[in-house]
Write a protein that binds this DNA or RNA. Structure first.
Lengths: 342, 342
DNA sequence: ATGAAAGCGCTAACAG
DNA sequence: CTGTTAGCGCTTTCAT
């Protein structure tokens, strides 16, 4: 008869209590470093716990304590440089703090609805980071009512703390750089036309870009705007379209480095020299920006993940963070893909 | 007196039972589609559950049922194209199957020990995917004894099912391509010298590479081997070192596309034309390989994540998968960074 | 087909 | 400083 062999069975808190000759409550306290435990007791408990290879069952403690010990990160997609960088940075901080990290890709409305209802309602995560997923009022309400500490990234939200950059300034910087070089016909490779995710970043960048051109009395021809979908392939396609125009641009501002890379590829295939015949710049300062010699606007992505994580940890520790909105500075990085027009 | 207002409190299974006029056991059965529930009852229960916005507390059900409803993925790092691609592919499959996905970066021995003991021992995940983290005997034993279904990727392991590629063939293909073009002095940009993670992929690729050269009676000069650390920066540095040699190579095989990108950058900065003066090829078929015109060996990374996920799901469903080892084919993708030597 | 009741393993008052 | 005792909310025999 297979009576559960105690050496095979996972040790429970009772096993430890028995071995150490104390109550389970004391074991619980000792192992969690709570006050009111004699040092000698604590030491003894720890010793037996180790010996029995005991670790508290997370599900039991979560149920009893009402916290999950996990945080969730929601991103539009994973396989994109920007998002994987954010996740990597935040994960390291959470892991150090002893939190499990749950991830969820939210590529569309379906997964999105699921995520909000499930994660917010079910007690799977003590807190959430929404990465570049601007929320509608309904979603905000769900999270607020559920009382789930939430931090946002990318999209500014009045309801939640977050780490942001000044995207209007990003657009302005791009226009300033390109116009300063003497360009008059500057194209814009933006995001999608449809925006199911309420993603506000592109509009801000575009606004800053257009306003700066306006201020300089440079006409922004609407036909010079193309959707690049924030992907390499999209940037390529957008550039191809732009190059086919009767009156093509002499410079291009792509809203992300990945789109800029695609644009560079298209330009080269078209036989154009960059920057001799066409200037191209991006946003991000991607790992490979230097390899392409890409002029870009850095947003210090490596800082953003850890910042967001620390913001959430502060919320979880119940002390309001010093600043609810952390703004990461952006800075123009001039390389070799931009120059004066011919 | 803040008596918990039932409309604010999360609905429990008891609330639903009461509303529907049945027992909690019946609610539990009905909501999980278990047999032995009258259709009419099930419908009624479902209706009230929805009305009360009820969803089972995962911690409670996990504790009671002994399963966590989550899977864990461990990767060396996140912010690398290859790993984020694998995670993205697997996450989509797991999410569809209703599993939570926990992630852990294992950059070094410390996090590694933590991961194995905690995740395997504590009941936080029902299964684990170890991505390119070849395990030592000790770790294998821990996982095997804990009985945690585990799937590996990259590093073949006799103890666990996994998805693999033939890395020896990868090395051979590279040597064949470059030697076939007529190169005699071929450099190798490999991984690290120290290998704390028991990562076997590099050795396999190197073995295939050297053997093929040997078969062709081409001498592989050990000074033509450089460590590139599987990063862009590492590839750059490695290439710089190679270029400073008295007798530099005419072709380079980098074990990853990211290292190849760095190498291309270095070569260009050095004033060398690629491939006129120097041929460079990589492994992966990275998103940006086409933008660089990089000749590479595709390993269909987009398939690997979903394959690994499905393997694990099969294990979790308790039916042994059809094949324990899924081998993904590799294929040479010729672009424009390789050509005959001058 | 349904219900009663015994846990799952831990935490958190409350006593002492 | 430590022990007792209720639960946390659900699942799962075992009856009926």
């Amino acid at each position: 008869m297979p009576t559960t062999d105690p050496s095979e069975r996972r040790a429970t808190i009772e096993d430890v209590a028995e071995a150490a000759g104390v109550s389970v409550a004391t074991v619980s306290r000792a192992l969690r470093d709570l006050p009111n435990v004699a040092t000698s007791t604590r030491l003894r408990v720890e010793q037996f716990a180790q010996q029995l290879n005991y670790r508290a069952d997370p599900n039991a403690s979560r149920l009893a304590a009402g916290r999950s010990g996990a945080v969730a990160m929601a991103v539009p997609v994973f396989n994109s440089w920007y998002f994987s960088e954010i996740v990597a940075g935040a994960e390291a901080v959470f892991a150090d703090a002893g939190y499990d990290v749950l991830i969820s890709a939210i590529p569309g409305p379906h997964r999105r609805a699921l995520f909000v209802s499930q994660t917010a309602y079910q007690r799977r995560a003590d807190g959430i980071i929404m990465v570049d997923l601007a929320m509608g009022q309904g979603e905000r309400d769900v999270l607020l009512r559920a009382g789930v500490p939430t931090v946002t990234t990318g999209a500014k939200s009045a309801d939640f703390p977050g780490v942001i950059i000044d995207n209007v300034a990003v657009g302005r910087t791009a226009a300033t750089h390109l116009a300063g070089l003497g360009h008059q016909r500057i194209a814009l490779i933006a995001g999608q036309n449809e925006d199911p995710l309420h993603f506000t970043v592109p509009e801000d960048r575009q606004r800053g870009f257009e306003r700066e051109l306006e201020a300089r009395e440079i006409f922004f021809d609407p036909s010079l705007e193309a959707a690049g979908n924030f992907s390499v392939a999209g940037g390529y396609e957008a550039m191809v379209g732009l190059l086919k125009l009767d009156h093509p641009p002499t410079a291009v501002f792509a809203m992300s480095d990945e789109m800029a890379f695609g644009a560079i590829q298209a330009a080269r295939e078209y036989g154009l020299g960059v920057p001799e015949d066409l200037s191209i710049m991006g946003v991000d300062d991607h790992d490979l920006a230097a390899a392409f010699g890409l002029t870009t606007i850095s947003q210090q992505v490596d800082h953003q993940g850890p910042l967001a994580a620390r913001l959430l940890l502060a919320l979880l520790d119940d002390h309001q963070p010093d600043e609810l909105m952390v703004e990461v500075p952006t800075v123009l990085v001039e390389r070799t893909t931009t120059g004066p027009p011919v």
